[in-house]
Structures are given as C-alpha cells and as structure tokens.
Computed example of a mutant assay.
Amino acid sequence: MTLWAAVAVTTATFLGMEFVAWFMHKYVLHGALWFLHRSHHVRHPHHLERNDFFFLFYGALSMAGIMYGSAEKDWRFWVGIGIAAYGAVYFFVHDVLIHGRLRFWRKSGNKYLRALNMAHKMHHKTTGRDGSEEFGMLWVSPKYFELARCKPAPSRTGKKITITSNS
C-alpha cells in the first residue's frame, strides 16, 4: 500500500469513527446497552464506570486490525491505526478535557473546546435513557459555537476580569 493510500485509509477511518460513535451512542448505548452506559450519566464515587467497557471493545477491534494487517501493512492495519487514533483523541477530549478524569487540564478559552463542552453538558442534562441530545464526540452543532462566541471565556485565576476605560 502506498503512503498516500495508507494516509487516506487512516484518515477515512478516523473521520468515519465519528459517525460510528454518534450512531452507537444514540441507538445502542441509549438503547439496548443502556444498562452499561447509564453509569456515565449518574454521579458516583468510582474511578471506573461500566461504560468504560466500551473502550475494551473498540481497543480490541483496533488491535485485531493492526495485528491481522501488520505483516503486509494492508488496509486492515491502517483501519486499526485509524480506530486507535480516534480512541486516543476520544480519551483526551472526552475523559480528560470534558469530564476531568485526569486533573491536569482546566477550563479552556478555545471556542471549539468550549462549544464541545457545552454540547456535552446538554447531553448529560438528562440522567435518563431518553431525552438526550448531542451524541457525537468531535462534531459540534453550530448553535454551540454561537453560544461559545457569546459567552465570555473563563479566566485562569477564577476571578472575573473587568475592563474599564480611562476617558
């Protein structure tokens, strides 16, 4: 496989995973597998959730593609790499930035990350199986970009900044 073909397969897989994540989240996690996903929508004192088992599923799928395609570096290898890349970004964005499971990142002034956070908070507004919106991970509805533009960015110190003019 050429370098460009490998890049194309990996990129297409990464982008396709956003649709897969949205579809699975909306119709499977908030459907038949709600009994596992519910742990993600309620407060609890545990570091791990039943919902974390989904990481194992996608990790195994990625690893299988990488292992079975590694000898020839064929499409299976690059699909596995694309799934792994999406999983790494998902972990960083969702678990670290949004839910703060690793406490080295605080509020961001970046409009995209703020819009993403607002959309995710809307998703978690309901603790039940039904009534949620915004099921994707990286794609954000335009209305949240508008909200992120209108709402001032949080300051790093936690203090409100007031701007006065000297006239």
Rank of each mutant, 00 (worst) to 15 (best):
F104G: 09
F104S: 01
F104V: 14
W105H: 08
W105A: 14
R106I: 07
K107M: 11
K107S: 13
K107G: 13
S108Q: 09
S108M: 05
G109V: 12
G109N: 11
N110W: 10
K111P: 14
K111V: 14
K111L: 13
K111E: 03
Y112M: 08
L113E: 01
L113V: 13
L113I: 11
A115T: 05
A115R: 06
L116S: 12
L116F: 08
L116Y: 10
L116G: 10
N117W: 10
M118A: 14
M118S: 02
M118T: 02
M118P: 06
A119T: 08
A119W: 04
H120R: 02
H120C: 09
H120W: 01
H120Y: 08
K121V: 06
K121D: 13
M122V: 03
M122W: 04
H123F: 03
H124Q: 07
H124N: 04
H124D: 03
H124E: 07
H124M: 05
H124Y: 01
K125D: 12
K125W: 11
K125R: 12
K125E: 12
T126M: 02
T127N: 14
T127Q: 13
T127I: 12
G128W: 08
R129H: 06
R129Q: 15
R129V: 10
R129P: 05
D130M: 07
D130L: 11
G131R: 04
G131T: 06
S132H: 09
S132E: 05
E133V: 15
E133Q: 11
E133C: 10
E133Y: 04
E134Y: 02
E134K: 04
E134F: 06
E134V: 03
E134H: 11
E134T: 00
F135L: 03
F135R: 06
F135Y: 15
F135H: 09
G136D: 00
G136P: 00
M137H: 04
M137V: 14
L138Y: 00
L138W: 10
L138P: 05
L138K: 05
V140C: 05
V140T: 02
V140S: 00
V140H: 00
S141W: 10
S141D: 15
P142V: 07
P142A: 07
P142N: 12
P142C: 09
P142M: 01
K143Q: 12
K143D: 01
Y144L: 02
F145H: 07
F145L: 13
E146G: 07
E146M: 10
E146N: 03
E146H: 03
L147I: 06
L147T: 03
A148P: 02
A148Q: 02
A148D: 06
